[in-house]
Design a protein around this nucleic acid. Structure first.
Length: 779
DNA sequence: TCTGTATTATTTTTT
DNA sequence: ATAATACAGA
């Protein structure tokens, strides 16, 4: 997957390194001159605990990479150095940079172990599977699988409460697990019906994962920590393996990760952590800043290094970001000094709605990327759903972009389906995977049959696989018995293939024998063709992974553990990305969008002071990603859901008012006029009611707002259609839909914004679209 | 009893 | 718009 060429470089032994010892240290010393005094201090503090408090853009990655290279140059075997990063991408980047440094210093490149906590734990547990009481080929459930497991557990318990959504329950389960609580404890502490039900679901979820031979993300950490805690032999073995440990983004470490770190560090205490309390943005998933703040208490011998020189951003950007985060109490407090000059002012644009916001951004991108295009631009937003307006506007205006997050390759349905078959071949008792593909492609196993199987499994307390076996064996006549037997035989064949064939070849068998490929070939819509290509890509990825010397489980682990941010390639161009995923990245130009109350800060965090503080840090992170320019935008009206919901006016984000107004220029065309820049200042008048706000905005608005989709696909007969009453002139028109092809309009309802059209497609039935969203063209 | 079509609820952030 | 669910036809 994210393996690169250096993975194949043979690790050089300790003696080889010693052989060139003196020579290398000299050259390494020269390289260390490239560091500033503080960074150098962090690098040369070789033994014992080290805490690096590093503000945004102060070169912390640089400090860690030089530190590791320096250790290797001094003769420390590369594979006894561990660095834990927040994403796989960051890990890859770090490995590359260490390799580069070693090459420059003339040191034979060695490979330190760099990975995320989760990948580290996955590999540890694979190697120590027997000691951990796990089968070596356990599955790793990703987020989707986890939600499916919760759903299954809820169905089994026949719990169907409105306020207990699977995702919500999963959050509670994860919270409990990360706080070391068992289902029994959760139940004992519960004082509401919801709490008790959550405890029951938790118990059923744990059992389901156990029976399926699967671990979730939390389990990877928990089981590793437990193993190291309880098995002295294993603990000493791994402590002996890692002599120097580094943890990046330490402010976002949770309790279990902390325990892991301590267990691995052991008595040697060669631990170096890097963090910034202002960039802690994962408290909601158990991260705990106090772990960072109490490092010096945990390790009294700790040396503390502060990195405060910022090499990334202009002083204006830093001042603006600093002013925002200054509103948070309980900071260690630090001064960030830009090495760059003041730079240009920040910009502010307020559009009527997300479309206007997106069009403004698209125009700016056009300007920025006009001539030379080696610049990197980021469109940052709080929630993934905000990306759509930008995607539409960019596509209309021909702005090329890359989307990070959302639906990544390994989350595609066809990829997950294929991998579910693979898991089933390993463990047929994996209910989640079984339910996923039992009737994909359709083999005549419908809801009724599945319900019956579930009931059998529930009463017998067995996995569905056994229930299938029982149903088939019982000899009862039923329509579903034959397809069930076929499915059984299919899995049998796959098991056979798994044990005899190479992984890539095995995957090919999976796709052919299951009929999955045939299903796609038969349907052969544009989407199906794309799916087939994705599956080919998957097979290719497996083959490449094998060539790189990885095992099949390595590959599967990586597929489960890819993170959204891993998709970012750092190439010139435009990237759409959530604020959370931007952590650790940097861009020449940043657009921080959707700066509204309810979006950023998000409405779910708005009621608690702690929530607001974290949102503020999120904004701080987003702002400090920018090197040269930072533009803040917002939309006055936003739809909560797709279309039915009404437009809702929102107030400007409170964080905008925290930025000193003299650092910001309001863009021409912004709805908030220049006189209204006072909104940037703390102003009691700023907090008027939403009704009054709406009135004000309407007052400001131009008398005839231009139609928004001027550059869009031709909107057929809009002017005519407005004249309602007589037979709609749109009826009978031929239109083209991107995936359904050409059809005829057979119905029109509503008008303007919400106008919906029914289109009859030959052979595919009648579909109803919201005209504004469906990309219909006149045919 | 399965399969396709109509209706409805759904969006915080993620390893 | 998309995903889950309900309903009707084969």
């Amino acid at each position: 997957m994210h393996r690169t060429w250096f993975a194949r470089i043979v690790t050089v032994g300790y003696h080889d390194v010693c052989h060139f010892f003196l020579n290398h240290t000299d050259q390494m010393l020269k390289l260390l001159d490239e560091l500033n005094p503080e960074q150098r201090q962090a690098v040369e503090a070789q033994d014992g605990p080290v805490l690096i408090l590093a503000g945004a853009g102060t070169g912390k990655t640089r400090a860690i990479t030089y530190r590791m290279a320096n250790l290797i140059a001094k003769g420390v075997p590369a594979d006894s150095i561990l660095a834990v990063t927040f994403t796989n991408k960051a890990a890859e980047e770090m490995r590359n940079r260490v390799t580069d440094l070693l090459l420059r210093a003339g040191v034979p490149p060695g490979q330190p172990w760099v990975s995320t906590f989760h990948s580290l734990c996955a590999r540890l547990l694979r190697r120590e599977a027997p000691a951990a009481g796990l089968p070596r080929d356990f599955a790793i459930y990703d987020d989707d699988d986890q939600v499916a497991a919760v759903k299954l557990a809820m169905a089994k318990l026949q719990i169907d409460a409105d306020d207990l959504t699977p995702r919500n329950v999963l959050g509670r389960i994860s919270y409990a697990k990360n706080h070391g609580k068992s289902p029994e404890q959760v139940r004992a502490e519960a004082f509401t019906q919801d709490g008790r039900q959550t405890a029951d679901i938790f118990a059923a979820y744990e059992k389901a994962l156990h029976d399926s031979k699967a671990l979730d993300f939390d389990d990877l950490l928990l089981r590793s920590a437990r193993l190291l805690r309880e098995s002295q032999i294993t603990r000493e073995k791994w402590q002996a393996r890692f002599h120097y440990i580094h943890v990046d983004e330490y402010q976002d470490t949770n309790r279990v990760q902390y325990e892991l770190m301590r267990l691995l560090t052991g008595p040697r205490q060669n631990i170096c952590v890097v963090g910034d309390e202002d960039q802690s943005i994962y408290a909601w998933r158990g991260a705990d800043v106090s772990i960072l703040l109490s490092f010096s208490r945990d390790f009294p011998a700790a040396r503390v290094v502060k990195l405060e020189r910022n090499y990334r951003s202009t002083q204006n950007i830093l001042d603006a970001a600093g002013a925002v985060v200054a509103n948070n109490p309980e900071r260690l407090g630090k001064s960030l000094k830009a090495e760059k000059s003041a730079g240009i002012n920040l910009k502010y644009f307020e559009g009527r709605d997300p479309q206007a916001e997106a069009e403004y951004v698209a125009g700016e991108l056009d300007r920025l990327l006009g001539g030379d295009s080696d610049q990197t631009c980021a469109i940052e937003y709080r929630t993934n759903s905000q990306s759509r307006a930008f995607e539409e506007a960019f596509r209309r205006q021909g702005v090329r972009y890359k989307l990070v997050g959302g639906f990544s390759f390994y989350h595609r349905a066809e990829v997950k389906d294929a991998l579910a078959y693979v898991r089933l071949a390993m463990h047929p008792e994996d209910d989640i995977s079984l339910l996923r593909v039992l009737n994909v492609p359709p083999r005549g196993i419908g809801k009724t049959t599945v319900d019956a199987l579930r009931e059998t499994a529930r009463t017998d307390g067995t996995p569905l696989w056994n229930a299938i076996e029982k149903t088939v064996a019982s000899g009862t006549v039923g329509r579903a018995v034959a397809p069930l037997r076929t499915f059984q035989e299919l899995i049998g064949k796959l098991q056979e293939a798994l044990s005899t064939k190479e992984p890539a070849e095995f995957l090919h068998v999976v796709l052919e024998e299951s009929g999955y490929m045939d299903m796609l070939k038969d349907r052969n819509t544009a989407e199906d063709v794309a799916r087939m290509e994705n599956l080919e890509e998957l097979t290719r990825a497996v083959a490449e992974s094998m060539e790189a010397g990885e095992t099949f489980t390595d590959f599967l682990d990586a597929a489960s553990l890819v993170s959204d941010a891993d998709q970012y390639e750092g190439k010139p161009g435009v990237t759409l990305i959530t604020l959370h995923s931007t952590k650790g990245l940097e861009f020449d130009h940043v657009f921080l969008t959707g700066m509204e109350e309810g979006i950023c800060p998000h409405s779910r965090s708005i009621n608690e002071e702690k929530g607001i503080e974290e949102e503020r840090r999120l904004v701080y992170v987003g702002m400090t990603r920018a090197r040269k320019s930072l533009t803040l935008t917002r939309a006055v009206y936003r739809r909560v859901f797709g279309n039915e919901q009404q437009l809702r006016a929102s107030l400007p984000s409170r964080f905008l008012a925290e930025i000193p107004s003299e650092l910001v220029d309001t863009v021409r065309g912004s709805l908030a006029e220049i006189g209204e820049t006072r909104r940037y200042e703390p102003d009691p008048e700023y907090s008027y009611s939403s009704e009054e706000f709406l009135r004000r905005v309407r007052g400001v608005q131009k008398p005839a707002p231009a139609p928004r989709r001027t550059a869009g696909p031709p909107s057929f007969g809009r002017a005519n259609a407005k004249r309602a009453g007589d037979a709609n002139p749109m009826l009978g028109r031929r239109v083209r839909h991107p995936s359904y092809g050409v059809g005829t309009i057979v119905g029109v309802e509503g008008d303007d914004e919400d106008r919906r059209v029914s289109v009859s497609f030959p052979g595919r039935g009648t579909k109803k679209f919201v005209e504004r969203y469906a990309q219909l063209e006149q045919a």
